[in-house]
Each structure stands twice: as structure tokens, then as C-alpha cells.
Design a binder for these strands. Structure first.
Length: 938
RNA sequence: GGGCGAUUAGCUCAGUGGGAGAGCGCUUCCUUCACACGGAAGAGGUCGUAGGUUCAAUCCCUACAUCGCCUACCA
């Protein structure tokens, strides 16, 4: 078997991925053996491409999936993407804008066709990228939130909630994005500290002299004011309560009301109330039964209610004009700089507008209670646990979820309205439904019409279809009865009219994402996948979508299936740049995972991410680390290359660990291997990926390569075939298990080593993960003794700068038979590793007067250095060591002199410390002896 | 305003109620037949500050400082 001098990832990665996919390696095992283990991927946006967050997220899931697969579980890792309603629609609308096409002109159906076309062409780029990373997803089960089955699940849940009264329409202020032209949920608003201005405006009393001055950051909204509020206890304003004000610019009369929510300290202590354009004011207005006056349009312009002077102005232009006009009237008292936080649309960063609309809401309180209980009762574990408080805090404070969006790309709400039916008050519903056209509709008589009520438009001769196709906005008041249905309605169930209107809105993308853990498995049907894989085992995600997604999945899972959607939630860190900054396109500090894969290979990149993934802290990504792990792979590669040279000496039938253990070096490394495997299994089970990765790293590099490989070289280089066989068998035994343990982290190189180099017949993906290997504590003890001796000698060589090519004599006085045996057993190794010409051992070895010295627990060794080096260096070295030992002696002495310590500390601790003290004291004596000797001959 | 987390070697970070750890970087030596993407040996830290609990604190508690993050209706 030929093997290259260094590892080249680019040559093998694609090959193995194709092999795995072709062979169906990532599908759950068909023999139905093994406990199920399932993960659904957090569906990335279909518009997205792989970033570091995805890479970490996918790596963690893949490590878990591959590990469990090797442990014999029936593993399903289900991949897919979500349709990202607003984001995707924005992308396609921008495309259309280049051709000057408005989606309304195109029509809903045709627009959605275009989006599907776009998706077919550009969407799902991320899927390909996940494959580059090595993700072992079952692609045959890939899902998309707009798939038929998932759409059915969405509709089913909507209807269910509707029927239970948990899905309702309501009129209230929501966060509105005037650019995306849709409602947003509370979570979709990003607040940002902004330098604004606080304007002090004089509001004159209508019924006499005097005025109130109010402070506002948004003067343009004054056009919608319907009151001024002061605190009831505010002495300054007590006399104003109940009086009327003539609202400047508008001329309306508005009352002064008393409300405890007013902060007397802020501004002037008098606050203008704009119920339709401010969340606080909305609440105040409801308490005082104040009228709501909407002065804006859906796209952020002033409407006719704002007055003829301002109607049609953009909200920022209007602000300027209002301020100007107030100045002219001398009603602008003053203005000053003011820092405050302003909400922006998380998709397009436009300043959001609190806007009074009718939307669909999910009544969340009862569902949230269940979701809190599930975590409290530990039916769901959040890992790290620290996130629980965050979760509880948010869930207890939760408000009803606004789920309707005024866009087209998504799951259209399964609700219809009949214009021909009457409301319970007896009004014809068609008279209440209001249409606004995206462009004037030309009637036969040449007149153009911009909109109107449904009934009115029909009377003017427009057809039902024309009305529906021309509408940009349809306002359907709450009195109009919603007809909710699992199947598409073509006629009104009560009056039979075929001319019914469908609710134009679609559902929040997160609504469908909330069903992801079960809708992807085929729910609401009781499919075999649902039975086998639900609830899923673990969800792996970042904390940034804990509320957006995780909390909602828990709520919907419990609500729809009666079960938790997953048992564990592993919440990983955010990947930052090397300086700790959040990666963002605008900062230009994003690291592209694919670039990392190109440069270092997917395995090194993945291993880095796993090694970085300590719980509870953000990750600072550094390329140097990735490079380091590439070196690590190269190390393993070369160790393998070395070993392959001894393949021919292996036994025909690979021996068991017990047979190998006859040799102490073997039993030692097997024991270390066993500890390593335990560490890896335990740490992976506890989601401590960094610990698991470090454990393997350390074992391979520092125990297997640095020690074992070097220890057995004398045998491999020798002529004794039997000895060669003993160590060659062990080398391969360890290598195979090491490769297996690395596989979840480094799938590509391990498969290459497994199949091509170790010439295994089947893929490593389903090979058994090492666990419960035998331990040999006695061998560990004995080898530690030998390794200490080697280190002691090397330390002298290093510190005294004895040339490596120079062979030395070692006079080693063993303090007990055990030590003598251990050294004799490993004589060849000790000689080789210390470049020693003459190794004298025994209880009574003679010692040369001018010698360097080392002390271990069980031996005192002397290296004659006369002629090798000047004595001063050794005297200095020993002096330094003596100082260290004395420091330690002082530490333990102080402890052991303390009666409270002897009285209160556990016996084993006291004993341990006493033993250490005595050992140090002996060591100190030996060093002192030698120092004196050296000084005498100096 | 509320909450959470961090503070350990030059850098990035693990970690534990009983003599401080890793990786990288640094210093010295070595192109010895797996690997210079390497080997060997070193240097380097009153574990943020001040108190407290304990026989014993880097670890537990309290306060403070600095830096992050999340959250909130500062009009």
C-alpha cells in the first residue's frame, strides 16, 4: 500500500462523500436494529449560503450523528430548508425591479411561479455546501417548508388552533415595515441606539389662555394626537386635567387626561397621546377610551387624515415640514439632542412603524405554560442549563404571536370571507370589505377607480375576479366572519355564494418552522418515521433563535403532538472573528467556511470547530488553530505511513487486547487508549465536544506518537521477528481504534485510512465505535516510572546542552526491585530514547564523581559529564531544581504543621500530603549530596 | 432600568475546594531511517480588586472595577 508523504484532503473528500451517498450510508439502518436517534437540522433559509454559524451547527450535529451511528443506533439526521417568506420575496422582488416589474402587475400566481423558478435555480446552495463539510444527513428525506406535506401540516395546525379559539383576528398596533409592507412579530424588530432629537412643542389650551408643552421624538405623529396625558399627582398640571387643547396644525380639540403611566421626570411631564402610532399611547387610549386616528399609509406616507397640507408626504419629509410649520407659528419651544432606541426591520433595516391593523394572532398563554412546565420538569433539557432562566423569563412574559404577513411567498391563510353574507348586526359584509388597488382600474365608461368597498365596486360593474386581481390591500373588518377550512373553499358554506374572497395574507415563516420536528416526519399522518423518530433526540442550535424557533417548537410540539419535540437542546456559541467581533458582511470580517475547507480540508476545519465548542462562551475563530489541526492530521497520516511499513509483520489473525497486553508497553498504551475512549464517549454524551476532541488529540500526538511509537522502535528496527510481531500487532490495534474515534470529527481522512490504508472492506461509517476497552493500571504505573526516568535523562541532556549525537553513560541506582525490573524490561527503549551508550542499573551501581543527576520516585540516576560540559552549568541547574523542591517542601511543611489541617482535613488528603513531603525531602537530600560532590571537584 | 456571562501564561482559551493546564507564539538544541505540517528541552502566571466562609479558595459567598451579551413601552 503506497501512501503519500503528506495528507492531501482535496484528493479524497469528494470521492468519499459520493461513495457514502451512493451507498445510502446516511439512511437509518434498514435492519430496524438499534435504538432510534434523530436530529432535525435547523432549516437554513433557502436564500442563504453557508456561514460559520451553520458550519459549527452542522459539525456538532454530524459529530453526534456519526458517533451514534457507530454505536449502533438507528440514526436519522433530517435536512432541509425553510422558505424564508420575507427574505425570499425581497430577493425576487429586487430581481423583478430590475426589469421594472411590480409583483402586483404580475399577479399573485405568476409571482409565486417566479419565486419557485428562482428557488430551483439559486435556492438550496447551502445543501451543496453542507455536503462539502461532510454532513451525514439523509438527503432522501430532505424537506422544504413549502412542500406539500409540510403545507398540509401547517394548514391542519391553523385550523385546529382556529377551532379551539386560539387563532384569532384582532385590531391593534403591530410592528409594521413600510418597505416590506408587512406586519412583523415583536421578535423581528431590532432595536438600535440612535441619535435623535427631542422636540418640545407648545399645545395651547382651547378654553382660555395658557398652554402645555409636550416633548416628542416624532413630531409628525402629532397630527394623529387625540389627547395629552399628565400624571394625576403632578402638581404642575393638576388644573389642566379635563380641559381641552387645540391641537396645533390640525386644529382639533383634544382633552388633557390623567394617567399614572406618565413619567413626571421625563421631558415636561406632559405627553402627547397618538393611539394609532405608538404602543404606549395605544394602551393609554384604551384606558381612557380615546379615539384612534391613523394618519399614515401602509408605505409610510401621511394619509388624508393628516390634513391636506401633509397628505402624501413621506413620514420623514412630514417630520421636517411639521417642525418648520411649528417654528413659523412659534409653537416649537425648543429641541435638543436625544439618544433613544429605534426599531428596525430585521430583514431590510427600515425603521419600523407602529401601525394599527387587523392581524391574525395565536393566543399563546396556555401553550406557553405547558412549554415552561416541559422544561421545568426536565422533559426537555437545555444545555448548557444556564439558558433555562432566559427561556423562562421570555416565556413568562410572552405576548400573543402575530402570525400574519402581508406578503405572497408562504403558506396562505386558509380562511375565506363571503361578501354576500351579513354580519351578526345585519350589515352586508361586502359593504365592509375595503379594497385598495395597486393602480387605478379602468371601467368601461372610461372612469378610473382606485378602490372602494367590495359591494360598491361590484355595483360599479367590476367582476369578482377583477376586484381580487387589482387589490393591493384588502381591509377586512373584524365583524366579517372568517370561514376557516382544511380544504380550499369554492363557495360560502352558509349562503352558497361562489364569489368568496380568500384572506390574502400568508403565515409567518416561523409558524411553519415551529412544526418542523414533526411535520418533516410526515405528521399529522402517523407515518413510520413519526413513530420511530418522534420525539427527536436532540436539537442543536444557536441561542440567537432560542425564542424565534426553539420556544415556538416546544409550544407547537406540545400543542399538536402532545409530546415534547426533542429531549435535549444543545445551544452552541456564536462564532466571532479573531478579535471577538460579530461577523457581518458590512464589517467585512466574515470568514467563509468553504475557503477554510479549501485551504485546510474539511476535517481540520471541523475538528477546529469541535475543539472550539466549549460550553457557554462565544468562539473566537482563528485560522492558526485550523492550521494546527491540519498539522495534527498530517501527524496521524505520517504515523500511519510509518506503521504501514510493518504491515507484513502482523499476525494473520489480529490478536485480542488481552493477548497483546503481555508486553508492558502494549498494555500501557492499551490502557491509555481505554481511558481516551472513555473520555470521548463520556464527553460526547455530555455535549462537551472540545473535551472529547482534546482528549483524542492528546492521546494520538503525545501518548501514541511521542511515546509508544518511539518506545517500540528498537523492536521494529531489530531482527527479532517475534518482537516485531508483538508491537506491529499492537500498533495496528491502537491505530484502528484511534481512527474510529476520530471518525465523527474527521470523516474523510478516517474513511481514507480505514478503507484504503488499513484495507477494511466496509465503510467506517457503520463500524463499531470503541468503548469498554480493557485497562491495565499496573502497566500504567510501571511505564510511568520508565517514562519519568527517560524524561529525567532527557532533561539533563536538554538543559546542559549535550549534543544529541553524543552518547552518554547512565548510572542508575534503582531504589527497589520493581523499578529495576521495569527498567530492565524496557532497557532497549530507554537506551534508544536517551541515546545512551552504557546503561548501568542496580541497587549498588557505582557513581562517577563528576556527574549530573536526576531523581525520580524510584531511581537516582547519574550521568558522568566530565569532558562533556563544564560543571558550573550542572551546579546551576541543580541549584535551580533544589530551589523548586524546597519551595514545595515549605508548602507542605506549613500545611502539615497546621494542627487544624491535621484535625479537619480528610485522612487520605493528609496521608497523601505527608507522603509527598517525605518524598520531596528525600529528593532534596539527594540533590544536596550531589551538589556538594560537584562543588568539591570544581 | 432589569437580567446573564466573562476577567487564568505574550495571544486564544480549558479547568478544579487540596502542590496552576492546553494550543499557538517565544528561547535553546537537533535536517537521527513516519512526520521540520517534525523531535527534545526550557522560559513565562500573587488565576481582575477588596472582603468573607473553610483546616484549605483560582474555584463557594458579598461588594467593586472593567468588558461583553440579552432584555425593556426613556414619550
Amino acid at each position: 500500500m503506497e501512501i503519500g508523504k503528506s495528507y492531501s484532503p482535496e484528493e479524497i473528500e469528494d470521492k468519499w462523500y459520493e461513495f457514502w451517498e451512493r451507498e445510502g450510508m446516511f439512511q437509518p439502518r434498514q435492519d430496524m436494529q438499534g435504538e432510534p436517534f434523530s436530529i432535525v437540522i435547523p432549516p437554513p433559509n433557502v436564500t442563504g449560503s453557508l456561514h460559520m454559524g451553520h458550519a459549527l451547527n452542522a459539525t456538532v450535529q454530524d459529530v453526534l450523528s456519526r458517533w451514534k451511528r457507530m454505536l449502533g443506533y438507528r440514526v436519522l439526521w433530517l435536512p432541509g430548508t425553510d422558505h424564508a417568506g420575507i427574505a425570499t420575496q425581497n430577493v425576487v422582488e429586487r430581481e423583478l425591479a430590475k426589469e421594472s416589474i411590480d409583483r402586483h402587475r404580475l399577479g399573485r400566481e405568476e409571482f409565486i411561479n417566479r419565486v419557485w423558478q428562482w428557488k430551483a435555480e439559486y435556492g438550496g446552495k447551502i445543501i451543496h455546501q453542507l455536503k462539502k463539510l461532510g454532513a451525514s444527513c439523509d438527503w432522501s428525506r430532505e424537506r422544504f417548508t413549502l412542500d406539500e406535506g409540510l403545507s398540509q401540516a401547517v394548514r391542519d395546525v391553523f385550523v385546529r388552533l382556529f377551532e379551539e379559539g386560539l387563532m384569532y383576528r384582532d385590531s391593534r398596533l403591530i410592528n409594521w415595515c413600510p418597505r416590506c409592507h408587512t406586519a412583523l412579530s415583536d421578535l423581528e424588530v431590532e432595536y438600535e441606539e440612535t441619535d435623535g432629537r427631542l422636540y418640545y412643542i407648545i399645545y395651547p389650551l382651547a378654553d382660555g389662555p395658557g398652554a402645555l408643552t409636550v416633548a416628542t421624538t416624532r413630531p409628525e405623529t402629532m397630527l394623529g394626537d387625540t389627547a395629552v396625558a399628565v400624571h394625576p399627582e403632578d402638581a404642575r398640571y393638576k388644573n389642566y386635567i379635563g380641559r381641552m387643547i387645540r391641537l396645533p396644525l390640525a386644529g382639533r380639540l383634544i382633552p388633557v387626561v390623567a394617567d399614572e403611566s406618565v413619567d413626571m421626570q421625563f421631558g415636561t411631564g406632559a405627553v402627547k397621546i397618538t393611539p394609532s402610532h405608538d404602543f404606549n399611547d395605544e394602551a393609554t387610549a384604551r384606558r381612557h377610551n380615546l379615539p384612534f386616528l391613523n394618519v399614515m399609509t401602509e408605505d409610510g406616507h401621511m394619509n388624508s387624515e393628516a390634513g391636506a397640507v401633509y397628505a402624501g408626504l413621506d413620514r420623514t419629509a412630514c417630520r421636517r415640514k411639521v417642525v418648520e410649520d411649528l417654528k413659523l407659528l412659534e409653537l416649537l419651544d425648543s429641541e435638543k439632542k436625544h439618544k433613544h432606541s429605534v426599531g428596525h426591520c430585521y430583514r431590510c433595516k427600515t425603521v419600523i412603524e407602529p401601525f394599527d391593523t387587523i392581524q391574525w394572532y395565536v393566543k399563546i398563554e396556555s401553550i406557553a405554560k405547558e412549554a415552561i412546565a416541559a422544561v421545568q420538569e426536565k422533559r426537555i433539557h437545555l444545555i448548557p442549563e444556564g439558558w433555562e432562566n432566559n427561556y423562562f423569563g421570555w416565556m413568562r412574559d410572552i405576548r400573543d404571536w402575530c402570525v400574519s404577513r402581508q406578503i405572497w411567498w408562504g403558506h396562505q391563510i386558509p380562511v375565506w370571507y363571503c361578501p354576500d353574507c351579513a354580519t351578526s348586526e345585519g350589515h352586508l359584509q361586502g359593504e365592509l370589505i375595503e379594497h385598495i388597488f395597486f393602480e387605478p382600474f379602468g371601467l368601461r365608461d372610461g372612469l378610473e377607480i382606485a378602490g372602494g368597498t367590495y359591494a360598491e365596486l361590484r355595483r360599479k360593474g367590476m367582476s369578482h375576479a377583477d376586484i381580487a386581481a387589482s387589490s393591493k390591500i384588502i381591509r377586512i373588518p373584524r365583524q366579517v366572519k372568517p370561514l376557516c377550512s382544511r380544504t380550499d373553499l369554492t363557495a360560502c358554506p352558509s349562503c352558497g355564494s361562489g364569489q368568496i374572497l380568500r384572506d390574502p395574507d400568508v403565515l409567518d415563516t416561523w409558524f411553519s418552522s415551529a412544526l418542523w420536528p414533526f411535520s418533516t416526519l410526515g405528521w399529522p399522518d402517523e407515518t413510520p418515521d413519526v413513530k420511530a423518530f418522534y420525539p427527536t433526540s436532540v436539537l442543536v442550535t444557536g441561542f440567537d433563535i432560542l425564542f424565534f424557533w426553539v420556544a415556538r417548537m416546544i409550544m407547537m410540539g406540545l400543542k399538536c403532538t402532545g409530546e415534547v419535540p426533542f429531549r435535549d437542546v444543545y445551544i452552541h456559541a456564536l462564532v466571532r472573528d479573531a478579535k471577538g467581533q460579530k461577523m457581518s458582511k458590512s464589517k467585512g470580517n466574515v470568514v467563509d467556511p468553504l475557503t477554510m475547507i479549501d485551504r485546510f480540508g474539511a476535517d481540520a476545519f471541523r475538528f477546529s470547530l469541535a475543539a472550539f465548542a466549549a460550553q457557554g462562551r462565544d468562539i473566537r475563530f482563528s485560522e492558526e488553530r485550523v492550521e494546527g489541526y491540519r498539522h495534527f492530521i498530517n501527524k496521524l497520516w505520517n504515523a500511519t505511513r510509518f506503521m504501514v511499513g510493518y504491515t507484513e509483520f502482523r499476525s494473520v489473525v489480529a490478536p485480542s487486547a488481552a493477548e497483546l497486553a503481555a508486553d508492558t508497553r502494549n498494555s500501557w498504551i492499551l490502557s491509555r487508549l481505554s481511558h481516551c475512549a472513555d473520555d470521548v464517549n463520556r464527553n460526547l454524551g455530555a455535549y462537551r465536544f472540545n473535551e472529547a476532541a482534546n482528549s483524542i488529540y492528546h492521546f494520538i500526538w503525545h501518548e501514541f506518537c511521542d511515546w509508544y511509537l518511539e518506545l517500540v522502535k528498537p523492536d521494529l528496527y531489530g531482527d527479532d521477528a517475534a518482537k516485531k510481531r508483538v508491537v506491529a500487532d499492537c500498533l495496528f490495534f491502537v491505530l484502528e481504534r484511534v481512527v474510529l474515534m476520530l471518525h465523527p470529527f474527521m470523516p474523510f481522512v478516517t474513511e481514507e485510512l480505514w478503507q484504503r490504508v488499513l484495507e477494511k472492506k466496509k465503510s467506517i461509517t457503520h463500524a463499531a465505535f470503541p468503548c469498554d476497552l480493557p485497562c491495565y493500571p499496573e502497566a500504567e504505573r510501571r511505564m510511568t516510572l520508565v517514562l519519568d526516568i527517560i524524561s529525567g535523562i532527557r532533561s539533563i541532556r536538554g538543559e546542559l546542552n549535550i549534543n544529541p549525537s553524543l552518547e552518554i553513560t547512565v548510572q542508575m541506582k534503582t531504589l527497589n526491585d520493581d523499578a529495576l525490573e521495569a527498567v530492565e524490561e524496557n532497557r532497549a527503549s530507554v537506551i534508544k530514547l536517551t541515546r545512551c551508550r552504557d546503561l548501568q542499573t542496580g541497587r549498588n551501581v557505582s557513581r562517577t564523581k563528576g556527574s549530573a543527576m536526576f531523581v525520580t520516585d524510584s531511581v537516582v540516576g547519574y550521568i558522568p559529564i566530565e569532558g562533556l560540559l563544564d560543571l558550573d552549568a550542572e551546579i546551576a541547574r541543580l541549584g535551580k531544581e533544589k530551589a523548586k523542591v524546597e519551595e514545595a517542601i515549605a508548602f507542605f511543611n506549613k500545611k502539615l504543621m497546621n494542627e487544624d489541617f491535621l484535625k479537619s482535613a480528610p485522612k487520605n488528603i493528609v496521608e497523601k500530603d505527608r507522603a509527598k513531603f517525605e518524598e520531596l525531602a528525600r529528593k532534596n537530600d539527594k540533590i544536596a549530596d550531589n551538589l556538594n560532590l560537584l562543588k568539591t571537584i570544581q
